[in-house]
């Protein structure tokens, strides 16, 4: 048992170091992490996130409630056979004379296909960062393709011109693309757990867990209990509820700085 703990104590800082690649300078890295916060804000805005969901039922409205008519993702992301998204969502937003409640439109209105869901909903910054870069999850897009997608895709651009009374993505599109490039140009640095913790986004440690079960639905919440070790040290594994992302947590001694690193689930 003690041996195991020592082993983990060695591993934890190593794994942490692996989060930041050698490439960019400290300032570049900080700027990239900062830029990624804007990327995240956009990717997780209801206009984008309502269809980048883990399940098969898309969401709608600023509140992200289940889409009316129980519509589904379907075999290719374009809805159920016989009820494609295009049945109601045309090539462009309807004229203003149709009122604020007519369905909005943009070319190729759809969800990502079921084989490549590109889920952004509820992901922490580290998890979102990893998803965007993973060609196995992002439809095989390299950075040139990703930048083209976020700068030119008509359905992406709709997020800034959603029509009706829908809230547009609040970050100006040009600024979003610029931030995306800052992050990409710095080698798309992995946004680490410590970065996310610094921004107050993640609640990684059991002691910081929300008190009641209902509160634990908050994004970023992790669940786990540490195994006590030598001289008050502890090690634990926290698994995030919604995506089973696993976080290794090591506490050298009670009350000292805890170290955390993400490990693949």
């Amino acid at each position: 048992m003690r041996h195991e703990l020592r082993g983990l104590a060695m591993l934890a800082p190593l794994a942490l170091a692996a989060c930041g690649p050698a490439g960019p300078s400290a300032e570049q890295r900080a700027a990239a992490v900062d830029a990624f916060a804007t990327v995240k804000e956009v990717f997780q805005h209801p206009r984008c996130q309502n269809c980048h969901i883990p399940g098969d039922a898309p969401l709608q409205f600023d509140a992200g409630v289940a889409h009316a008519q129980a519509v589904v993702r379907g075999p290719d992301g374009h809805g159920a056979p016989g009820l494609p998204c295009g049945t109601c969502h045309g090539e462009s937003n309807p004229p203003a004379s149709y009122g604020p409640h007519a369905p909005p439109g943009a070319p190729h209105w759809a969800l990502p296909p079921p084989s490549m869901r590109m889920v952004t909903q509820g992901l922490s910054a580290p998890a979102l960062c990893a998803m965007i870069k993973d060609t196995k999850e992002n439809n095989g897009r390299d950075f040139a393709a990703l930048i083209k997608h976020v700068s030119e895709d008509k359905l992406v651009l709709w997020g800034w011109n959603p029509g009706g009374e829908r809230k547009p993505v609040p970050v100006p599109h040009a600024q979003f693309v610029e931030k995306f490039k800052v992050w990409a140009d710095a080698g798309a640095v992995s946004v680490g757990v410590t970065d996310a913790r610094r921004s107050g986004e993640m609640t990684n440690f059991p002691s910081e867990r929300p008190a009641t079960a209902e509160d634990r639905a908050v994004p970023g919440h992790r669940k786990g209990d540490p195994i006590p070790g030598l001289a008050g040290s502890a090690v634990g594994w926290n698994a995030r509820r919604e995506n089973r992302e696993t976080l290794r947590v090591f506490e050298p001694r009670a009350g000292t700085t805890r170290k955390a690193s993400l490990v693949p689930a």
């Binding site: 008519q69 129980a70 519509v71 589904v72 379907g74 159920a80 056979p81 016989g82 009820l83 049945t87």
Partner: peptide, 16 residues
């Protein structure tokens, strides 16, 4: 689109 639809296919296609 689906020449032999199941009950689930029918529900999904006609839910609108």
């Amino acid at each position: 689109a689906k020449p032999e639809p199941t009950d689930a296919d029918i529900d999904a296609a006609l839910s609108g």
